[in-house]
Each structure stands twice: as C-alpha cells, then as structure tokens.
Design a binder for these strands. Sequence first.
RNA 1: GGGUGUAUAGCUCAGUUGGUUAGAGCGUCACAUUGACAUUGUGAAGGUCUCUGGUUCGAGUCCAGAUACACCCACCA
Length: 849
Amino acid sequence: MKQDIPKAYNAQNVEDSIYKVWEESGFFNPDNLKGDKTFTISMPPPNATGQLHIGHAMFLTLQDLMIRYHRMLGEKTLWLPGTDHAAIATNAKVEKLLKEEGKTKYDLGQEKFIARVQEYIKQSQGTIRQQIRKVGSSCDWSRERYTMDEGLTKAVQTVFLNMYKDGLIYKGYRIVNWCPHCESTLADDEVEHKDQPAKLYYIKYGPFVVATSRPETKLGDTGVAVHPKDQRYKKYIGQIINIDLAGHKIKIKVFADKEVDQEFGTGAIGVTSAHSLVDFAFAEKHDLEKIQVINEKGTMTKAAGKYAGQKVLEARKNFLSDLSKAELLVKEEDYTQATAICYRCGTAVEPLMSSQWFVKVESLKKKAITAVKSKKIKIIPERFNKIYFQWMENLHDWCISRQIWFGHRMPVWYKKDDKEKNNPIVQIEDPGKGYFQESDTLDTWFSSGLWTFSTLGWPGKTEDFKNFHPTTVMETGYDIIFFWVARMILMSEYALQEIPFKTVYLHGLVRTRDGKKMSKSHPETCIDPLDAIKKYGCDALRMSLVVGNSAGNDLKIYDEKIENYRNFVNKLWNVSRYILMSSENLEIKELSINTLADQFIISRLQNIISSTTNNLNNFNFGQAGEDLYDFVWHDFADWYIEITKFQPNKEMLLFVLENILKLLHPFIPFVTEEIWKQFKQDELLMIEEWPKANNKLIDNKAEKEFDFLKDIIIQIRNLRSQYKIEPKKIITVYSRKKYADDEKKIIEKLGRCEIKVEWPDSKNKTSELANSHYKFSVVLGDLIDTAKEKKRLQQEIDGLKKYLTGLEKRLSNTNFIKKAPKNIVAQEKIKLAEKQKLLKDLKDNLDSL
RNA sequence: GGGUGUAUAGCUCAGUUGGUUAGAGCGUCACAUUGACAUUGUGAAGGUCUCUGGUUCGAGUCCAGAUACACCCACCA
C-alpha cells in the first residue's frame, strides 16, 4: 500500500530527473535496441545559436511521439539530432557583436572572422541542446551532428566536386537577386514578394514613350522592345537610335518580340538588360549590350554618368527632376507593385549582373518529380503534392554562391594572379602556395539538402548509412517544403540515386488565439515553450500541440488550452494514485471479468488499443490523443473506477492502467514514466512493448448494454437535478425489468436510489422514465410537480413525434425501400418500432398523471 | 495573373468511404464538497453545419457557383 504519493502531479520536480534516467539508459541509441526493422527520423536542425520557440516545441513533440511509438513497437529507432550553422543569420549576429566592439569583419579578415563565429557558436550551442531535452525529445545524442562539422563538410565538398565534374555546377555571369543589405546573392525562393504602392513613370524616349517604376535603371537601357505587329512602331524595328535622357546619352536597339503586350503601358518597353530578369532574357535573345548602372552596394556606377556614386533612391529623385525640367516626363501613375524583398532582412532586392555559381536543375528536377509521382515518397497531407510539382516544374537554375563569409567554403581555387577569378580549379585538396581559395560560401540549403545522409557518415561507407538510409519519415513545416524538402529530394536523388525519406509529414504553423503568427512582434499573446513547461509541465504543452490538429493545418494555442491538458495530466496522476494506494499487491495474477462493468471496460480497452494504433500508423496524432483523453477521463475514471468502489476488481484496474500508460506514453512521456516507476521500479516504460488488442475481449453487446445503464443513470440524475432532490437522499425507482445484481447495484449506487422490481401503485405520484429498452419509474412522492412533469413529458413527446414523422415518411418512400441498402432499411424499421413503443409509453405516462 | 486551404455552439476544434434527432473541450448557468482528483464531480442552456443551386431514396459530408478570411507561387515594363 502506497501512501506517499503527492495529491497533485508536480511536473517540475520530476521531468529533469526522468530525462536523465532515459538518457543514461542508452535506449535513445538504436544500437541498444533489439529488432530488425528500423525507423529513422532526421531532426530538422535548429539554428546552432538559436533559442527554442513554440514551432520547435511542436515539431519536437510530433517527432518524439513517432519515435517513442515505434520504439515501443520494437523497432530499431533512430532520431538523429543536430544543429544548423544558418550562415546568413549567424554571420549577421556576429557582425553585430563586432560592431558593439567598434570593429567590422574587414578588420579581422575572413579566416579570423570565421574563427570568431565558430567560437560564438560553440558558446551558444549548448542552450538549444538543453532546450531540446526540455521537451522530452528522445533523440540519440551520441549521433548528434552539426552542419559545419568535419564529416558534413566533407559531404558538401564531395557533392560539389561531383556535380561540377558532371557539369551540373557551373560558374555563370548573369542577373542574380542581390540583397544590398546582406551584400549577398539570394536564391529565387529566398526572395519574397510584397505588394507595395508604387509609381509608374512615363518617360519620353526618343520616338517612344516608355513606362517604368524604376527610372534610374533607364540610364543603362540598351534596347526598346515592341510587338512585331504593332503598327505604331513597326517602322523603327531594327534601327539603332540615340536618345538623350535629359543630358544622359544612351544608344538603343529597337527589336520586336511577341512577349510584348501591346495593351500594357505604351506597348514599348525600355530594356534594362543588367537590372531586370525579363530584360536580361531579351538581351540574350536579341544580342543587346548590358550596362550595369547599379553596383553591389546599391549605388550608381560610372556608367550612370553624372549620377555615379549616388544611392539608388537619391539618383531616382535627381533623374526624375532632370527629366521633368527637360519636359521628358510625360506622366505619373499610381499602381501596386509586387516588390521583391529579401526574406531575411526585408530590403528591396536589386537584380544585377554578377558572376556566380549555379546548379543546373533541369535533369535533377525530373528525378525529383518522379520520386513523388511514383509514390516512392508520400507527402502528408496529399494536397502538397500539387504544390511540390508546380514548384519543381518552374524551378530555374539555383544560385548557390553567397558572399557571406561564414559558411561552407567552396572547394574552388584560383592561381594567385587570376584576380578576376576566371579560371577556377575545383578540387577538395588545397593546391598549396600560389593559389587562393574562393571566398564565396555556399547557400545554407546546399548542405541542408544533404542532411539525411551526410549525418549518417556519407560519403564514407558506414554501417549507419547502410542501416538507416533512406530515412523513414521527414517531419517538418509546410513553410519550408521548397527551401528544404525539395532540396533534399534533389540532392539525394543526385548523390545516391535514392530517395532521402519515404514519408513527408508536414505540420502547420503555430498561431495565437486570434490567428497571428507567433513571433517576437506580438509578445503579449506569444507562448514561450519554456515558460509553458515551467508553468504547466511539458506533458501538458505536448498534448496541446498535438490534440486538435492534423497534418498541414495551422494550430492555435493559448493558456487555457494548455491548462486543460495540465488538468488531464493531473487526472491521470490521480487515477493512478487511487489505484496504487488502494492496491496491496501490484501484480496481476489473473485477470477476472466478473461484471458487466468489467466486460465493458476490457472491451473498450481493446477498441482504444486498436484505434490508437491505427491512428498513429496513419499519422492521425490529434485523433489518437483525443480518443485516449476521452477514454481515460470518461470511460475509465468517471464510470469504471466509480463502479469499482463498490464492485472492486483491483487487477482489472491495474491492467487497464498499465495499458493506458503505454498508450499515452508517446504523447505524455514524463508523467506516464513517473507513474510507471511507482509500481515497476526497475523497468522503463519507454521500452515497454506496445499493447496489442485482443479481439476475443471485444464485446459489443456488453458495451451497448452498459450504455443503456448509463442512460438510465443519467436520466435519474437529471430528474434529481430538476426536482432539486438533496444529493444524499435515496429515492425509489421501480423497474419492469429485473436487472442482474451487478447492474442493479450500479444504478442504485450511481443514481442514489433503490430499485424495486414491481410496478408502483398508481396512486403513488411518480415520474416515469423510459428509454427504448427499459421502462422504469421514479417515485417522487410529494416532491412531484405535476404541471412541471406534464410539461417535461409533453416536450419529450413533441420531439419524438417530429422525429417519427420523418422516419415514417422515409419508410413509406418506395424509392428508399428499393434503393437503400437492406441493412439500412432494416435498421430504420427497428428504430421505428422502438420509437413508437417509446411514444406510447410516454403517452401513457402523461395520461396517468 | 495562377494555385491552395478554411467556413460546424460565445471561443478552439472533431465529425473516417454520404445512412440515428450533428459531437467534444473551454467558457456560461445551476447544484454538490472531509477519504484518487476543486487541476474535482453532477446536470443544464447553447447550432438554419456561410449562401445558392445540383447529384442522390438520403448531403455537414459529393459536385458547381457565390461570399468571406487565410496562405502559397509569379520577371507585365
């Protein structure tokens, strides 16, 4: 008999020590697990210098849930954790730190700057590691990786080298997205579009008028495009025209292209080859000169003539004023423009000419599309397939070089005298003196794309790689399907000719109660996972991140919700406390099923075991959690346990509890493990075997029978409540049916009544109750309010009549009889008979009042 | 411009391939309180399932259209 269990579950007192026991047990490591089948998840690596936010908490919970479930299924389960170097973000952070010391990165130089960054990461990496543990993550720390560690760097260099050899990586001079703030290129998907009010300026342009939202770029125009059939401009096609733009002289070539829309603007486009992607395409096609008028810092170049050295906006203002003075500015129009901005800093992206490294995607994307089309990779929810295909099909060559100092250096070298970097030498080994390495670094997503296999020791031929790749599930947010999921498929298909994972499970975003994205911009409604854990316990947080949500959908979270699951965790605690405290022997020798209640609970348990198993197999985590919540609180605690207070069955209580703990463990690992410890000191719930349903114990008849009993009790309680009968008063209930002793006792105890199996003297004032199976009446004596009772019955009769009318109509419809399945018709007929009988009973009752 | 999602009780959401009189939690109201649990128990009130058509014996569920909100993609100068 245990007496020393605290009344309320105190998560804070136990979580850390339980985590320590788990971690030290070695069972996070699949090497210590038995089983032939493997189950692998690569953890999406949080930023090495980051702080845990609610989004992390959500993915950690979902992944841990899967991992714990599969571990209990007896699979060799690997959850490989790690951190990401997050090039741009980390680079920026350290630059900021330097600035506080009054220094810039140029004072240090690239080598020392990187050393400084590494030092900073080392220092702050511990934070996120500890925070990942706080959520209960059962990942294998012995295999933890970091995107910049030696092995991963080797993988990056190897893939780069191979791609270069295969002609899939090339250096090209072309328009790229340039962020003047980050001073680096951006990939196409790192550019966001935001609608902004803008002005469209119409400029007189020799014989043409052209429209532009960026007048300053016109200083570098080298062409005018018109539609081949445009009568207005036909005569100019092929001519080279000198144009004076308020003193700035340009020479343009007029050419025809079907892409031009005659209706938009003036039908004539001033072509700025070096600062617009569309125009660049024109320039390539029609062989135009490309003049760069804006440089990497966002200032005008020498080619911009007298505007050289001015910032873009400044130059625009001055140029417009000059045009206006020269009467070349025809008109201005307001319109909304989708402005391209940097996804990281929000600065307007400057398209400009630059020599950069690219990945040729044409052949890769075909494979990546096939991988999903062929169903080798399954995306959950399915609708993201379409989004994935669309994106893949429109993918352009991927710019992978960044001018950020921190990141994977490319294995590219130049001779000391090749200052223009025209003749790259691609090899992993340093060619030694006389050479210098490319200072550009690689897009973070290049290394992230290798994550599923670079973390397993590839390119080495390791056991881990053989055993755990392809990984089983990739669980991540739908917001990085392009950045990351798509890249992993591309890279894995290229490097291994193999998919990186079999299933992609996409979760949604975590939002505040009013639907805002949880970010630092509205701290008032933001949930900090660490605060929530402190306040409500980790298990409560986990439940509220899982229940009420399904794949691909956003989740709203707020305090009351977490509080509710804290209450649930506490309920489970007290259920266990009750069972443990009232059980002298904690061993289950032989399970005996004696009563209807026993039959009911053991049957329901089998059902919940199989439904939970099915739901988890089908990634319906929310549903599984909700069903368990319901089973524990209502079926088990509210009904079964209450009944065992007068029909004890200690072994059954223990048995059901054990199973509940197992089923709930993947959702709420801490409290379940803590309770488990109370009666199995030397065993860990974490590696217990997942329950299997025993279909022989499923008893639908008993479940139905039990539901009728519940119905009777609820009706009696309802009546007591209506008549405000003192809770302690025992009332008399007459029943026409003779109940088995155990059933009779259940009604008597839970309805606080005494059952007499005889029909009451009609002179007694009674309230009569009935359901479709049993008729019974409650003697209320002087308490009865005839008028009230009549009204109640009348209401019930009215409702029933309405329902019967519908039912009769349905059954008299020959089409229904003919076309509906037979079992449905039969079912409806039974229903009709039952309800008619009930109606008659109710009417009799009313008459007798 | 192209695409996707969502719309069910005051709030947050379930509702599986169409088949009872549409469910839960929170909140609200009423009642209960020393023995697992007030982080509780018992009961109640609360819904034209956004709208309009259609398919069907039967639609919250399927189809079409509309409206509202959210999101993603996109190089119309």
